[in-house]
C-alpha cells in the first residue's frame, strides 16, 4: 500500500480540482473557434457548429448579435490555437 504523503495538498489546488470535476457543459455559452474550414459559432456541449465563416470577424459579429438578442449568456472567442482571445458576457447577466 502506498504511503500517505505527510505534505498536505494546498486548499486552492483541492478546490480547483473539485471545480474541474464538477464541470457541466453550458448551452448558454457560444464559442467562436477555428476549424478546418474557417471559423465556427458553436453552442457549448453540442457537436455541430451553428454556422461556419471564412473570416473570424464575421463569426464574432454573428455570435455577438446572438448574445445581444438574448440567445446566449456568454460568447467565448478563441484564438486559432484554442486558447481564449475574449470572453463576452450579456449585459443582462452578471459574470459567473
Amino acid at each position: 500500500m502506498a504511503k500517505k504523503s505527510p505534505i498536505k495538498t494546498s486548499r486552492s489546488k483541492t478546490n480547483i480540482d473539485a471545480r474541474m470535476k464538477s464541470y457541466k457543459s453550458r448551452p448558454d455559452r457560444l464559442h467562436v473557434l477555428a476549424n478546418k474550414n474557417g471559423w465556427s459559432v458553436k453552442r457549448e456541449g453540442t457537436s455541430r457548429a451553428d454556422r461556419v465563416f471564412s473570416r473570424k470577424s464575421d463569426a464574432v459579429i454573428r455570435a455577438t448579435s446572438r448574445l445581444k438578442k438574448g440567445d446566449a449568456k456568454n460568447v467565448i472567442i478563441h484564438k486559432k490555437d484554442g486558447t481564449i482571445d475574449q470572453w463576452k458576457t450579456s449585459s443582462k447577466t452578471s459574470r459567473k
Binding site: M20, Y23, K42, I76, H78, G82, T83, W87
Partner: peptide
Amino acid sequence: TQIWQRYNEFYAYFERT
C-alpha cells in the same frame, strides 16, 4: 472535430476557473 471542440470548451472553463 469533436475532440477539438471539447478542447476549446475545456480550455475556456480551465482558464476561467
